[in-house]
Measured scan of single mutants.
Amino acid sequence: LVRYRTISKIPQITLNFVDLKGDPFLASPTSDREIIAPKIKERTHNVTEKVTQVLSLGADVLPEYKLQAPRIHRWTILHYSPFKAVWDWLILLLVIYTAVFTPYSAAFLLKETEEGPPATECGYACQPLAVVDLIVDIMFIVDILINFRTTYVNANEEVVSHPGRIAVHYFKGWFLIDMVAAIPFDLLIFGSGSEELIGLLKTARLLRLVRVARKLDRYSEYGAAVLFLLMCTFALIAHWLACIWYAIGNMEQPHMDSRIGWLHNLGDQIGKPYNSSGLGGPSIKDKYVTALYFTFSSLTSVGFGNVSPNTNSEKIFSICVMLIGSLMYASIFGNVSAIIQRLYSGTARYHTQMLRVREFIRFHQIPNPLRQRLEEYFQHAWSYTNGIDMNAVLKGFPECLQADICLHLNRSLLQHCKPFRGATKGCLRALAMKFKTTHAPPGDTLVHAGDLLTALYFISRGSIEILRGDVVVAILGKNDIFGEPLNLYARPGKSNGDVRALTYCDLHKIHR
Rank of each mutant, 00 (worst) to 15 (best):
G271T: 01
P163E: 01
L176Q: 03
Y329C: 14
F363W: 08
V131M: 05
P367T: 05
S81A: 12
G303N: 01
N310A: 01
V302F: 03
I339K: 01
L343R: 14
T438L: 11
S258R: 14
Y124W: 05
S326C: 05
S276V: 04
N391P: 05
V336G: 03
C126P: 01
G334K: 06
L145R: 01
G334E: 03
T295D: 01
R208M: 07
I135M: 14
G123Y: 15
I340Q: 03
N250V: 14
A330D: 04
N391F: 10
R362K: 13
L207C: 13
P442G: 03
P367Q: 09
H239T: 01
F420A: 01
K395L: 12
F397N: 01
M390C: 10
T98S: 03
Y80D: 05
L200Q: 03
M139E: 01
I388F: 15
G267R: 01
F360R: 03
E376Y: 09
I339L: 10
Y170N: 01
A440Q: 08
C427M: 09
K272N: 01
V180P: 08
A403C: 03
L197P: 04
M390Y: 07
A330K: 07
I77A: 01
I141T: 14
S283M: 01
G443M: 04
A242W: 01
S345D: 09
L227M: 13
Y329H: 15
M231N: 01
K287W: 01
E314K: 01
H162I: 11
Y80C: 11
N250D: 01
A130H: 05
M390E: 03
L229N: 03
L428C: 08
L201K: 01
E221I: 03
G249R: 01
I332H: 03
M322E: 01
T98D: 03
I72W: 14
I177H: 01
A125N: 04
W245Q: 01
L200R: 04
F108R: 01
A242K: 01
T150F: 01
P128F: 15
Y344G: 10
S277D: 06
L94K: 01
W75P: 01
N391Q: 14
F190I: 12
P70N: 11
K111D: 11
M256W: 03
L109K: 05
A403E: 12
E115R: 15
F140G: 01
A224D: 10
Q365H: 14
H380N: 08
K202S: 03
D444S: 10
M139I: 03
P442S: 05
F175W: 04
V357D: 01
R356E: 15
G334Q: 08
Y124R: 03
H364L: 04
A99E: 01
L176H: 04
L176I: 14
